[in-house]
Simulated scan of single mutants.
Amino acid sequence: MTAMSPLPDLILEPLVRAALMEDLGTYGDITTRTVIPAGTRYRARIQAREAGVVSGMQIAAIAFRLVDPQLCVTLHTPDGTAIAAGDLLMEIKGDAASILSAERVALNFAGRLSGIATLTAAFVAETRGTTTRITCTRKTTPGLRLVEKQAVLHGGGFNHRFSLSDAILIKDNHIAAAGGIRPVLQAVKASASHMIRTEIEVDRLDQLAEVLDEGGADVVLLDNMDSPTLREAVAMTAGRVILEASGNMRLERIAEVAATGVGYISSGALTHSARTLDLGLDF
């Protein structure tokens, strides 16, 4: 995967802090405090137990440092790296109680985000030989959108909107409530800032023709179309707008859809259906 700059820790710390407070409860880690003698020091290693693409190492490091700033955390495998079973990802040295108190939160984040990065990489691999890009959606875990979308980037994908305020995305219910495709596009042309991009959803080719005739959209989302219809949409558009295929975008369909020539394929499965990657921490 392409190397990318990490987000500032300052942005991620509130998410990690909230997770630690949830896990530590009102009285901290009573198991560790009861059975581990004070001052015990250890070295722990986080390793991959299966192959994939790693994400969440930055967050795991934040978790350990928030619990104990004196812990020595050494990152061996940066986020966005393809990994094999047995690869060493991180070492943590210092107070054993501190390591154990942060362990679950660190692994929960890293396993979840690595799963998203790994699934995204599998989707991206299916687009090889085409110019189609894989992108996520807003179907994310509440409160974790930022880091889940970051994991999509680590897997080689691209990000769609982060929030409702990022861009205008006109969907079927907007069209129904506003009275049709032409009224919504006319409203965009009359009122929207020139700095805001506009995407509109269609599920039939006659709707696409209406969008192209009216103008005002930068991107057209082709919803739940089969591959022959997608190819026809690409031919109709002839590069006048960006086309995004969405709806029922399973991994086994991606190569076929990418071959139609659409610019983007968006899939909520990247974030809502990714399996947690198996990572482990051992002393």
Rank of each mutant, 00 (worst) to 15 (best):
G215S: 10
R49E: 13
L24Y: 00
L66N: 01
A269M: 11
L222V: 10
G80E: 10
S273M: 05
T198D: 01
A63Y: 05
L119D: 06
L277R: 07
A3Q: 13
V219H: 02
S266P: 11
D206K: 06
T127W: 07
G86P: 06
L119P: 04
R253G: 01
L277P: 02
T40F: 01
A125Q: 14
D206I: 12
R161V: 13
D213Q: 15
H160I: 12
E22C: 09
A3W: 01
L221G: 06
R33V: 08
T271F: 11
I83Y: 03
A96C: 14
L279N: 08
P6R: 05
G129I: 08
L251Y: 09
Q70D: 14
E199T: 09
I62K: 05
D172N: 14
T81M: 03
K171C: 08
E210M: 11
V241Y: 02
N248Y: 00
A82F: 04
L12P: 03
L222T: 10
K171R: 11
M57V: 15
G143E: 06
G216W: 06
H76D: 05
R128A: 14
S193L: 10
L24P: 00
T140G: 10
L75G: 04
Q47A: 14
R17S: 14
R182F: 00
S165F: 08
E50D: 03
L119R: 13
L20E: 00
S163A: 15
R161H: 13
D278A: 06
T229W: 00
E22T: 12
G263N: 15
S163L: 02
R275N: 10
I181E: 03
D9N: 13
E252L: 04
A19D: 12
P69Y: 06
L212K: 06
G268I: 10
L205M: 08
G179M: 04
L144Q: 13
Q70A: 15
A38H: 12
E126S: 03
T135A: 15
S193G: 14
T74K: 14
S191I: 05
A177N: 01
V257N: 04
D87K: 08
G155Y: 07
R275S: 13
E210G: 01
I62P: 03
V188F: 01
E148N: 12
K149N: 10
Q207V: 01
A235S: 13
R133G: 03
Y264W: 14
M1D: 02
L12W: 04
A102W: 03
R43P: 00
L7G: 02
V220W: 02
F64P: 07
Q186W: 00
R128Q: 14
L20G: 00
D206E: 15
T77V: 13
S101K: 08
A121R: 15
T32P: 00
T120G: 10
S165R: 09
F158D: 11
E22R: 12
G28S: 07
V35F: 15
L20Y: 00
V184H: 10
A258R: 03
T31N: 12
E13G: 01
V202Q: 04
T31K: 08
A84W: 00
S55N: 07
A63M: 07
A258F: 03
G129C: 06
E252D: 15
A85H: 05
A192M: 08
A125S: 14
L164V: 14
